[in-house]
């Protein structure tokens, strides 16, 4: 049996301590050890982006990272986006604009969008499409996702909080 290693990290504002094999992927650690199954695994080789989480505030592929590399990190997953039962503006825009169908890529899309809007609060369509190319969606053809991201950007600008959200 491989020796287990200790790991301590903060996910969605809550501190976790656990043990895993050194080879455990961060995605598997989140899903299997912490029961945060909202993060999805679509390819395990870093292309599809469904596993994208916010890692110290920035979008990162949790399938391309070992759990041990997240020691001491602050991670936000899809489970941590809504606050007090209220959708994050990006979640709200996805709902209102029908920007998800099967919902499998959605955790990655939300994380990638939040990271993107943190760096570009007033994007145009081309910039949105470029940013979203980090995550593959097979259902929507991207059109309503683009629309939702533009709508979320507008709403976040209007609310004067285009910057970081909560513990993101």
């Amino acid at each position: 049996m491989t020796k287990l290693v200790d790991i301590r990290l903060t996910v969605n504002g809550r501190e976790y301590q656990g043990q895993c094999e050194p080879r455990t992927l961060l995605a598997d650690f989140l899903r299997d050890h912490l029961d945060l199954t909202g993060t999805h695994v679509g390819c395990e080789h870093g292309v599809c982006g469904a596993c994208t989480v916010l890692f110290n505030g920035e979008a990162a592929r949790s399938c391309l990272m070992l759990a041990v590399q997240a020691e001491g990190a602050k991670i936000t997953t899809i489970e941590g986006l809504a606050q007090g039962g209220q959708f994050h503006p990006v979640q709200k825009a996805f709902h209102e604009n029908h920007a998800l169908q099967c919902g499998f890529c959605t955790p990655g899309m939300l994380a990638a969008t939040i990271d993107f809007l943190n760096t570009n609060a007033s994007p145009n369509e081309e910039e949105v499409r470029e940013a979203l190319s980090a995550v593959l969606c097979r259902c929507t053809g991207y059109q309503n996702i683009v629309k939702a991201v533009l709508a979320a950007a507008a709403e976040m600008r209007a609310a004067g909080n285009a910057g970081a959200q909560a513990h993101v």
Binding site: T37, G38, E79, A82, F87, G103
Partner: peptide, 18 residues
């Protein structure tokens, strides 16, 4: 807007891998 979205947007959907 869809009924399905609430769970899928908050990580509470359940796929077979979950």
């Amino acid at each position: 807007p869809r009924k399905e979205d609430q769970r899928l947007l908050t990580g509470k959907g359940q796929f077979v891998a979950d």
